[in-house]
Design a protein around this nucleic acid. Structure first.
Length: 351
DNA sequence: AAATCGGGGGT
DNA sequence: ACCCCAGATTT
C-alpha cells in the first residue's frame, strides 16, 4: 500500500474531479434531508441508480417524511418495494422509521454509532447519512468505493473477507478529508459509478491514473478480486394459481424471514403429487381444470428456482383455508400488496 | 467467518 | 450465461 500521493492530495484530486464531472442532479441530491438521504441509501444497497430512481420518486410522493412512513401499513410499504428485491430492506426501513419517531421524536440521531443501531443501517449507510446530510466527517465503504480503493492500492483478496474489509475501512477512514465531506462522499461514489467501472474503467481520463497501482499492474479489472465461485443448487416449487369464478386468485402471506419475506404469494407445494394432494384436501369438490403451465427458472444469488405454475379454476368461491391468512387478488383491480416478482409476472400474464 | 437475502443490467 | 451492483443481518 504505497503511493506517492498524500491523503490530502488524494482528496483534493477527487474533489477537483467532482467539481468538474460529478453528478449533482440525482433526485436525492435535491432538498437534502436525513430522511431523503436515508431512503435513497437503503434503496441503493445492491441496486443501481437507474433502477432506483422511479421507485424513489414513487416512495417520496407516498411517504414524504419519516412520520408518514412510520404510520403506514407494512403492506403499503412493501407494495412500493415490489420488484426492487431484498425485501428485508423494506421491512427494516419501516421498522426504522417507527423507532426514529418513538425513540428520537422523529429526528434522526446525529452519529454513526447511534444510526448503526437502527434496523437496516450499517456502518457505510450511517457514514453516508451523516456525511451527506449532517456535515459530519465519516467514511463510507460501498461497492463503488471498494472498487476505487482496491484498484488504487492494488488490494489483493476478496473484499468479502474480514481481513480485506478491515483494511479497506482503514484506508477509507484515512483518506476522508477534514472538509467537504458531502462532496467527497458523493465524489467517491461517482468515480466508481461513472469512471472506475467494473469491466471498462476509463483510466485514460481518470485523475488518479498516474498514481494508481491497479493501472500500473496493467490489469485494473482484476480488482476487486472476485468472490470464489460456488455451484448454485437447483430447486423446484409448484405455484398453485387458484382462480375463483370472479377471476380472483388466492394469495397467502409468506413468513417474515427467508425468501420473499413478508410478501404475498400463491400457495406452494414441493411436487406436483403433493400439489394434487393439497388440492383434494382443501378443494376436493370445487377444483376443476387443473392445468400445468410452462415452467420457468428464477435465479437468486445462491440458487436457481424452477417455478412450475399450475392453473386451477374453482367452480365456486371457497371459505377459509385452515388457519392461514389469505387474500383473493383481482389482477384487473390490483390490491396494494407486496408481491414477489415472479408472482406479479404470473398474475399479469393471467390477464 | 460464512451464509442469507432479489432482481435487473451489463457484457 | 454469467457477473455483480450506493450492504446488513443472522447463524
Amino acid at each position: 500500500m504505497t503511493s506517492a500521493l498524500t491523503t490530502t492530495a488524494f482528496a483534493d484530486t477527487i474533489l477537483h474531479w467532482y467539481d468538474l464531472h460529478g453528478r449533482k442532479h440525482l433526485p436525492w441530491q435535491q432538498d437534502i434531508t436525513p430522511y431523503r438521504v436515508w431512503v435513497s441509501e437503503i434503496m441503493l444497497q445492491q441496486t443501481q441508480v437507474a433502477t432506483v430512481i422511479p421507485y424513489y420518486e414513487r416512495f417520496m410522493e407516498r411517504f414524504p417524511n419519516v412520520q408518514a412512513l412510520a404510520t403506514a401499513e407494512q403492506d403499503d410499504v412493501l407494495h412500493l418495494w415490489t420488484g426492487l428485491g431484498y425485501y428485508a430492506r423494506g421491512r427494516n426501513l419501516h421498522a426504522c422509521a417507527r423507532q426514529i419517531v418513538e425513540r428520537y421524536n422523529g429526528e434522526f440521531p446525529q452519529s454513526v454509532e447511534q444510526l448503526s443501531e437502527l434496523p437496516g443501517i450499517g456502518r457505510s449507510t450511517a457514514g453516508a447519512i451523516v456525511s451527506i446530510s449532517m456535515d459530519i466527517r465519516a467514511a463510507i465503504l460501498d461497492g463503488n468505493v471498494k472498487r476505487v480503493l482496491t484498484r488504487f492500492y492494488a488490494v489483493e483478496g476478496w473484499p468479502g473477507t474480514t481481513t480485506v474489509q478491515n483494511r479497506l475501512w482503514d484506508i477509507a477512514e484515512r483518506l476522508t478529508p477534514q472538509h467537504r465531506h458531502r462532496e467527497y462522499t458523493q465524489a467517491m461514489m461517482d468515480m466508481g459509478a461513472t469512471l472506475c467501472t467494473r469491466s471498462k474503467p476509463a483510466c485514460g481520463i481518470c485523475p488518479l491514473q498516474p498514481e494508481c497501482l491497479g493501472h500500473a499492474s496493467s490489469k485494473p479489472t482484476q480488482y476487486p478480486n472476485s468472490k470464489p465461485k460456488k455451484d448454485k443448487p437447483e430447486k423446484h416449487t409448484w405455484m398453485l394459481m387458484l382462480r375463483n369464478p370472479q377471476g380472483e386468485y388466492l394469495l397467502q402471506p409468506r413468513p417474515q424471514t427467508g425468501i420473499w419475506g413478508g410478501l404475498w404469494s400463491f400457495p406452494e407445494a414441493p411436487s406436483m403429487a403433493q400439489a394434487e394432494q393439497w388440492l383434494s384436501t382443501h378443494f376436493g369438490d370445487t377444483a376443476e381444470h387443473t392445468q400445468e403451465l410452462n415452467s420457468f427458472r428464477h435465479t437468486f444469488s445462491h440458487y436457481h428456482l424452477h417455478i412450475h405454475p399450475v392453473a386451477i379454476s374453482l367452480t365456486r368461491s371457497t371459505a377459509q383455508i385452515g388457519e392461514a391468512e389469505q387474500h383473493w387478488y383481482n389482477p384487473r383491480n390490483p390490491s396494494a400488496l407486496g408481491l414477489a416478482a415472479p408472482v406479479k409476472k404470473l398474475l399479469q400474464s393471467s390477464l
